[in-house]
Design a protein around this nucleic acid. Structure first.
Length: 222
DNA sequence: TGGACGATCCCCT
DNA sequence: GGGGATCGTCCAT
């Protein structure tokens, strides 16, 4: 019996945060906006764990970070530097404040919409700078404050899999029933997973919890 | 109530 | 590689 394509199930997100971070590479971020589906393949993430001084959850639960302490599989969106939003995938069970920051994706579907949202010129055909940073991803995908707490097991914003080698296989035959375009199954980024220290933090510098797809043109930096 | 600073981006040199 | 934009959040008065 063939397994139908489906968005990642709840238990995917309840696992250890570093594991979830690595497994998110090559998966597809999907935002249903009206009749359109904005889709990008995740190529760069960072894990933020308990006892991690770089994490927003380090000093305990507050109004800002409470979504991080909720059940895994929800979206934690925060506002930073007075002008940017960043999106995180909440992990683990309720009560544990851990999450994975989505740092970069490779644009896949509705790229024109993303380009317009990012204010790209019509004659600028290099999409490398479209979604190669956490705030750029949010701007391109139209993710903002109102999406904080969104259930990724819902139908507005979710993450899907199309990699046949992964632990969460999907088949092209299932895309139609999932309402996704036929081109959806193509794996684009390829490459092995590499890791490094995280970007833009002072504390927790030693942890090598940034994960990215080796050789991808769409990561924020090498 | 004030002030320091931030999981960033963009433009400038 | 350096600095400015810009404001919500948190902690110290």
């Amino acid at each position: 019996m063939r397994k139908a394509f489906k968005k990642l199930p709840r238990f995917f997100y309840l696992r250890p945060t570093v594991t979830v971070a690595k497994d998110l590479l090559g998966k597809y971020l999907v935002h249903k906006l009206g009749r359109k589906k904005l889709i990008g393949e995740i190529v760069e993430v960072e894990a933020y764990c308990e006892g991690d001084p770089a994490s927003h959850s380090y000093r305990g639960i507050t109004k800002r970070n409470e979504v991080m302490f909720g059940e895994g599989g929800h979206l934690y969106v925060y506002f930073t530097y007075g002008m940017h939003f960043c999106a995180n995938v909440v992990t683990r069970k309720k009560g544990i404040g851990e999450a994975v920051l989505i740092r970069a994706v490779e644009p896949v579907e509705e790229v024109r919409v993303m380009r317009k949202r990012r204010g790209f010129a019509r004659d600028d055909w290099d999409n490398r700078n479209l979604t190669n940073g956490p705030a750029k991803v949010c701007e391109a995908f139209g993710i903002a404050r109102k999406h904080n707490g969104t259930d990724l097991c819902g139908s507005e914003i979710f993450i899907a899999d199309s990699s046949p080698q992964s632990a969460f296989p999907a088949r092209r035959s299932g895309f139609k029933e999932a309402g996704l375009p036929k081109s959806f199954g193509r794996r684009r980024a390829g490459g092995r997973i590499r890791n490094s220290t995280r970007i833009g933090i002072r504390n927790g510098k030693d942890k090598k919890w940034r994960f990215f797809v080796e050789g991808s043109r769409f990561v924020s930096r090498i």
